[in-house]
């Protein structure tokens, strides 16, 4: 099984719901965004188009972040192909950040609550207590939710159902059908990382 995601750019309305739900689910500190939405303006007046490009870890089949990691902290789960980080092994060298062509790795340098001097809120304390400092944080497709039979938080909370989650190894899965029928494409295929996040044209 190789889990991945298809994002329909035609459906994405740039509401940032994925970004917010990801933050709520993972309790990521300020400056850490496992899911982000990039805005892209194309064309010229009067035919200007605003396109939204949601990005996240591409869970590559050939992940350069895993290859360059000197400690084995960056690894791939054999059973589902999810690229993850073992925080107990990470030395915080940040090599993986520079190796990722998608800029989807974040360095959690110091503890910083959202509301500064007020300290961490009970929510932050509950959600972020497992985050180590001095290590890399990244999206793991909400692996705990997925193992319990659910979907990643960004998929569950997308109001326009622009995100479809599934198994890339299964030719009959919805993601495989969508990529085939609607001409799905990955970002930066020239980097040879074989990403497992595909986009459907707007």
């Amino acid at each position: 099984m190789r889990l991945g995601m298809v994002i329909d750019l035609k459906r994405c309305i740039g509401c940032y719901g994925c970004q917010l739900s990801c933050k709520a689910e993972n309790g990521t500190p300020p400056g850490v965004f496992f899911a982000r939405v990039l805005k892209q303006v194309s064309g010229k007046y009067p035919t200007v188009q605003n396109t939204f490009l949601p990005v996240l870890c591409n869970h590559c089949d050939d992940p350069p972040c895993v290859e360059v990691c000197p400690t084995g902290a960056a690894f791939v789960w054999e059973e589902d192909g999810i690229v993850d980080v073992d925080h107990d092994k990470c030395v915080g060298c940040r090599t993986c950040m520079l190796a990722c062509p998608y800029s989807q790795r974040f360095f959690n340098d110091e503890t910083r609550p959202y509301f500064g001097e007020g300290g961490a809120t009970p929510f932050e304390t509950a959600r972020a207590s497992h985050h180590q400092t001095g290590v890399i944080l990244k999206c793991n497709l909400c692996r705990d939710r997925v193992r319990d039979g659910g979907k990643p938080a960004c998929v569950e909370n997308c109001p326009t159902v622009a995100r479809i989650f599934g198994d890339f190894d299964d030719p009959n899965s919805e993601v495989s059908h969508l990529i085939k029928e609607r001409g799905g494409f990955p970002l930066r295929p020239e980097k040879g990382t074989k990403p497992r996040v595909y986009y459907l044209p707007a």
Binding site: E67, V68, C69, P70, V91, T95, V135
Partner: peptide, 25 residues
């Protein structure tokens, strides 16, 4: 000093097959 967790530095010896950082170590 560059790495954030120097106490774990010896772990950097483990991945010399793929990682140039490990080979440098």
């Amino acid at each position: 000093v560059n790495i954030a967790r120097p106490e774990r530095a010896l772990r950097m010896m483990t991945r010399f097959r793929t990682s140039w950082v490990s080979r440098g170590f």
